[in-house]
Amino acid sequence: MLAVLNPLMRLIEVPMKWMQDTLGLKNPAWLFLLPNLILFGLFAFLPVIINFVYSLTGSDGILLANRPYVGASNFDYLLDCGSYVDPNSCRDDFFWRAVHNTILFVILQVGLMVGFSLLTALILNRKIRARGFFRSVFFFPVLLSPVVVALIWKWILQREGVLNAWLEAIGLESFNWLLDPSWAFGWSVFLSIWAHMGFYTLILLAGLQAIPRDVYEAAMMDRASPWRVFRRITLPLLMPTMLVVLVLALIKGVQTFDEIFAFTGGGPGSATTFIIQYIYNTGFAGTPRLFGLASAASIMLAVVLVILTFLQLWANRKNVDG
């Protein structure tokens, strides 16, 4: 790889040196920053501004010139609800179903996943043989691509799959798991935990190992019970890490899309459709392409994410060097 990069680097050096020598540029910091800032500007900041314009305009044109100003009607359309608890009473019931699904999914997935991650991290933090092996076993699915994760479990859960075979072998009925709305939702939660818990286990384990040994030794001197040690030492000292993990899991949970889209396609019906899939379906998959609605929904999602990110920065503030 260096053989390719070296000539390239030499090539870049010519104009850079010229600017430094001829133009007398003493501090080329901005030159080094330029490519990154252009990319950030074009693909992060500019889109945020344009997103607002899209959300305030209608029609299915992609060019802003073809989009008439419609005021807040996209937001009105999304928020027009008889009761926010009942998606059927909303004008855009698909959106509210997605919102409800996402909220329920995030509560279940984040709660269970952080719980299991904590349990696994606590166990891995004990005096365990082959700790490295066990740690990587739990971490392994994190690296799998979402589509691969979805297909692995689809293959197991399908009508004639190995899970049904096993159920029949022990005398139970086989079941078409992914055609039942509740079960499809449940398996989506499971699949998502299966795929991501290794990541959080890793962070929590690092947090546990950062707790100083002598605190535990002092507790042992005082003959504190294991439960008391956990309640009074481990848990409080792990709290900062727990907070980071919780917020991180929330941020990612709200944006769940890839693996569930490949797993159930959002179905059956709209049982596993989450907010990102609503945006994708409305703006890109269906006709007409309702970019305005998709943008309006994105902005509502962004508000949630900005709040969560501030929480993350706050929880993480000790690690960030300003």
Partner: peptide
């Protein structure tokens, strides 16, 4: 601060304008 700011703009919330650009 700008770099930290981009942390708050995941791709998922700017899909439509990103596609347009």
């Amino acid at each position: 601060a700008l770099v930290i700011g981009t942390l708050m703009i995941p791709q998922t919330v700017v899909l439509v304008p990103l596609f347009m650009i």
